[in-house]
């Protein structure tokens, strides 16, 4: 197993390197020039040259990449063109805010979806199954920006019980999850964000559990006298690798922060930061954010892979 873990870790390095290249290149493929937003339209050629030099845009792109990568490896993502502050500072603050929402959505969605999916899969075709499948379809079908707006209209505008935007009461600098004044701000965003994962994970769990129950070995388990709860445990363990794969993907998406949802709730997370950076062509922020998010994705996949192999040793061979 240790050898397998080391091998998988080594495999992750070229993937990470490739991702970093794409991140870096993407920004240059996209139309628009960061200097346009920085300089007045009538700036002289010399000024443009000077600014280009200051940001390193005058060097060939491969050299820029090498320099950028070298800095990134030491944790230096450069400075934001728009605000002039260090990218890492903005990025990690935003990441912490997104993690808060993602963790909440993960906790709710994963536990609820797994429980509902297991129940529905065990009693396929029953009323419970039809109800759960209905919930799952609704979950995946509702666009979450629409849901966010509807929730704001209901709970913030009409009922006026929950705040529509922001991370805390006006003027507060820090965020304390455990106080109601702060906590009420996370309710709507977390609810909105958990809908899609609930739908997707429920459906996956349901089909995996139902499929596993039809396998021959379940009959063997019953034939040796296990009671249904013990049988279900075997079934769950057999379904887990597939369910984990879907959970990993959903976790990755949630960490990326939903640009739309964070924008609607003005939640200062990674989605919000990306949105701002795109609008202002803030290349260092874009590169840094995308890279970190991509790395989180790669790391999540790695962890999921290792968990899957730990559960189902047959996967080790492929």
């Amino acid at each position: 197993m240790t050898a397998y873990i080391i091998r998988r870790l080594l495999y992750a390095i070229p993937i990470a390197l490739g991702v970093s290249m794409v991140c870096f290149a993407l920004v240059y493929i996209a139309p628009g020039d960061p200097l346009q937003t920085l300089l007045p339209e009538d700036a002289s050629a010399e000024t443009i040259e000077m600014v280009k030099k200051a940001y390193g845009f005058d060097k060939p792109i491969p050299v820029q990449y090498a320099l950028w990568l070298g800095k990134v490896l030491t944790g230096d993502f450069g400075n934001s063109i728009a605000s002039g502050r260090a990218v890492s500072e903005e990025l990690f603050k935003a990441l912490a805010n997104t993690i808060l929402l993602a963790a909440g959505a993960v906790a709710i969605a994963f536990s609820l979806a797994f429980a509902m999916g297991t129940v529905a899969g065990y009693w396929v075709g029953s009323k419970v199954d039809r109800f759960v499948t209905g919930v799952a379809v609704v979950g995946v079908s509702i666009p979450n920006y629409w849901l966010a707006i509807v929730l704001v209209i209901i709970f913030a505008v009409e009922l006026n019980v929950l705040p529509a935007t922001g991370m805390g009461p006006r003027g507060s600098d820090t965020f304390e999850l455990l106080t109601w004044d702060h906590f009420r701000h996370v309710i709507l965003p977390i609810f909105t964000l958990s809908m899609i994962p609930i739908g997707i994970i429920t459906r996956t769990t349901r089909s995996c559990v139902a499929e596993t129950l039809n396998q021959d070995f379940v009959e063997t388990l019953r034939a040796k006298g296990l009671v249904e709860s013990q049988v279900l445990l075997h079934v769950i363990r057999n379904s887990l690798p597939q369910v984990l794969a879907v959970m990993g993907l959903q976790f990755g998406y949630l960490m990326g922060g939903s640009i739309l949802v964070e924008t609607i709730f003005t939640w200062p997370g990674t989605g919000f930061l990306l949105n701002k950076a795109i609008l202002t062509r803030d290349i260092p922020v874009l590169q840094g954010t995308i890279l970190v998010l991509a790395m989180i994705f790669v790391a999540t996949n790695l962890v999921i892979d290792l968990c899957q192999t730990a559960i189902d040793p047959r996967l080790k061979r492929s």
Partner: peptide, 19 residues
């Protein structure tokens, strides 16, 4: 099941829990 009566199945490849 398994106490008084036991059963051996036809397909040893699929009758055991793989994980």
């Amino acid at each position: 099941r398994g106490g008084t009566v036991s059963m051996i199945f036809q397909e040893p490849m699929t009758a055991l829990d793989p994980v």
